[in-house]
Simulated scan of single mutants.
Amino acid sequence: MTTDPLPRLRALCLALPEVTEKLSHGEPTWFVRKVFVTYADRHHDDRVAFWCAAPPGAQEAMVAAHPDRFFRPPYVGGRGWLGVWLDVPVDWDEVAEIVADAYREIAPRRLVARMPS
């Protein structure tokens, strides 16, 4: 990985309505009332990733299709959250969609209605 992915991930998260960023467990984490994305900079291993809420069934499908890019994160994986490796070549358009889906899973409907199209 040649560039730090955190600024791009941060920009995607903060572009969504009423998102705030705080440190949680020592990592940048984005909230829309509750957590929807958390950064993992070598938090549990020697890899860089983020964990996020995901629609039902998305984690299993994405991990099965691309285990080199997606994983079941510790702690929240049992609730269907998705882990996305950021220390591999990243498709930032796809990451933007994944972040938007995470937001839709957690945000109140009135905020989802305000999302940029």
Rank of each mutant, 00 (worst) to 15 (best):
M1Q: 09
A113N: 14
R42E: 15
E105N: 12
W92N: 12
A58S: 07
W81Y: 07
E60L: 06
D91A: 09
A40Q: 03
V88G: 07
L14S: 09
A102P: 02
G77I: 15
A49N: 06
P56S: 04
V48G: 01
L14C: 05
G26A: 02
H44Y: 14
I98Y: 04
E21W: 08
V32T: 10
W30C: 05
Y75L: 10
R47P: 01
R110D: 14
I106A: 10
L16G: 03
V90E: 12
P67E: 05
V35T: 15
E105S: 13
A61I: 13
R79F: 14
E27M: 15
H66V: 03
F36Q: 03
Y103Q: 02
L16I: 10
S117I: 08
T2L: 11
W92M: 12
A58Q: 13
T38N: 08
V95D: 01
D87W: 08
P67A: 09
Y103W: 06
E18R: 15
E97L: 12
G26S: 02
A58Y: 10
W85L: 10
A54P: 03
F71Y: 11
R33S: 11
A61P: 05
R69M: 08
A113H: 11
F70M: 00
G78I: 06
T2R: 12
R114N: 07
S24T: 15
C13N: 04
P108I: 12
F70L: 13
